[in-house]
Design a protein around this nucleic acid. Sequence first.
DNA 1: GTCGATGCAAACTCTTTGCATCAGC
DNA 2: GCTGATGCAAAGAGTTTGCATCGAC
Lengths: 153, 153
Amino acid sequence: MSNEAARDKFQNYLAKKGLRVTEQRLAIFEAAFGQKEHFTAEELLDHARAIDDSVSRATVYRTLPIMVEASLVREVDIGKNLKYYLPNAENNPQVAQVICMDCDKIFEIAAPFMEWYGNSVSTKLGLTPVTQRLQVNAHCNALKQTGTCKNRS
Amino acid sequence: MSNEAARDKFQNYLAKKGLRVTEQRLAIFEAAFGQKEHFTAEELLDHARAIDDSVSRATVYRTLPIMVEASLVREVDIGKNLKYYLPNAENNPQVAQVICMDCDKIFEIAAPFMEWYGNSVSTKLGLTPVTQRLQVNAHCNALKQTGTCKNRS
DNA sequence: GTCGATGCAAACTCTTTGCATCAGC
DNA sequence: GCTGATGCAAAGAGTTTGCATCGAC
């Protein structure tokens, strides 16, 4: 999905929900889709302010859930009392996060069996899965062997 | 593992690490192993104070990581800016958490394929998995159909 | 007696909220 | 112009920390 298509989707979503298309929301959207890596709410605020310096922290926090709800941004909780976000290019929820504990880089890799697992849960517990999350915390082999982690920032 | 064996393990772990066996740490341990369900730090504080009312919140927060490190307690992050803990009976990390979004009950169910998945990660990314976490957020079928969720507290 | 452990309260981090003002529609 | 959206600052939740005192070894 191109950024233009995503912007359309965002505006349509807002319209459909009776929400207003404001300068700030657009700036936050642009800031989010300018990111290539995972970002935090605070980083998003910085980038959004670079576009429109009237954007406040409160509005970032109020807009993020809307973008998540519209499937434009994916929320990635890695268990650090801090949420990460990722502009949602494809629309594939069957992804695992692999976190390098040495450099804190977050990799996203396919985990297609999660869908099958969800079905198994339904059968066993009488619950219908809504979202699934697989997270792997890992150490870097290269760091252990050569003393450097190529992902270290 | 019986509670007695777990207590021994805790005391041995403390000794091995050069940490002291204090009244407060024992009270916190007992409180944790008196729980059958997942508990929060705050709930643990309440229960520990019922055993020894000199236990402070700070000591609970300082003791929890020790018990986690000793594999006596498992930390369960369900993405709510709030950590849950569970006395660790077996020693099986290949467990998924299924959370009922209607009643907030946390089910723990086996997910043996996670080990295989970890190996696959190693091969693909050059990382060695340390911990894995699979979480499924789900709705209750019974609630939708009959209006009641048998787990609702 | 030494030095780690403790309680207390304050600090900290991330996020949410009340309220007066502002601006889409 | 109505009503939702905003910025600000303060509050909130959960957790961590500095420091003087206490107590396990």
